[in-house]
Design a protein around this nucleic acid. Structure first.
Lengths: 151, 151
DNA sequence: CGGTTTCCCATGCTATCCCATGATTTCCCG
DNA sequence: CGGGAAATCATGGGATAGCATGGGAAACCG
């Protein structure tokens, strides 16, 4: 299983460590990813996490542009690769969540992991609750509007 | 991990030395590169850094052209190889950043390293901030136009 | 011989490794 | 089917190693 499924909430300890849920860790390993890539979510107080597969897809987008002679390369690559951070696991499957990501997501002592198939999100559970409800509302509305089926 | 991911800011000391961020050093080593190659960025007040992999790719581009009888050889090779500098690490993972590169990037006392997968950039942090913001703006639009979205 | 550069050591901070614990689940065998 | 053993997992804390940084002494070069 290379995808991220389910929702889990783990503790952030005094050293800024958090256990990546075992299923997600398994998915990352299945992708051939050492550790995990994290990036602040645009326009959301959340952190997005992903592995080798999404990384490789992004690399394909950037690849046609020459790193030295095409400004588009830097533009496309900077948005993903320089904003991302590569975190590695300790022997117990934890990562040290960098302070800037903790701050961006407004995380205090607990981290909520939400699997979204190809990537996952990390939230402060309190911040996430209303967001999750709103997303479900939207999905429901779309379902009703399209004659009881989601596209 | 042979790629450059993340953003790091280190100090340039009085002797013109700067620590290459440990993850980048690891990537260079994984590429089999002794030290690091640096070249002033075209049209940007920045320095681009890279290792063996990008070096080899560039060599492949130049290869079809004969060194003596094809003018393109000199043009391509000059643009990359003659402009580049090979810097080696001291025992603590630092390099002496040559004065012309420091001047080109307008670096004062701090160096910001931005990973772009196959290469990385070195900036004066103050110069980089607005550039980074502009790139994020443009990239957001570009990724949306391509149907792919940022994570 | 001045100005570099290169090597080496010292330091404080942080991340990493390692071990221990308890709770839960899975597994195996009677 | 049941019950105990073993494995998995999240969590905590102490010890160790790595990293960025500063500075001094030896080697190098014009």
């Amino acid at each position: 299983m290379q995808s991220f499924v389910g929702t889990f909430t783990n503790k952030l300890d005094a050293k800024g460590r958090v256990s990546i849920p075992a299923p997600f860790r398994g998915a990352l390993q299945a992708q051939g990813t050492e550790g995990v890539f994290c990036i602040p979510a645009l326009g959301l107080h959340a952190v997005k996490g992903f592995g080798q597969i999404f990384y490789a897809e992004t690399r394909e987008i950037v690849k046609p542009h020459h790193p030295l002679y095409d400004q588009k390369h830097a533009m496309l690559a900077a948005a993903v690769f320089s904003q991302s951070q590569h975190l590695s696991f300790d022997d117990d499957g934890r990562v040290r969540l960098p302070d800037d990501l903790i701050a961006h997501a407004g995380i205090k002592d607990r981290v909520c992991f939400a699997g979204l198939d190809s990537i996952f999100e990390m939230w402060n559970p309190e911040t996430y609750a209303p967001v999750r409800d709103a997303r479900m509302q939207q999905a429901l509305a779309a379902y009703e509007a399209s004659g009881k089926s989601l596209p």
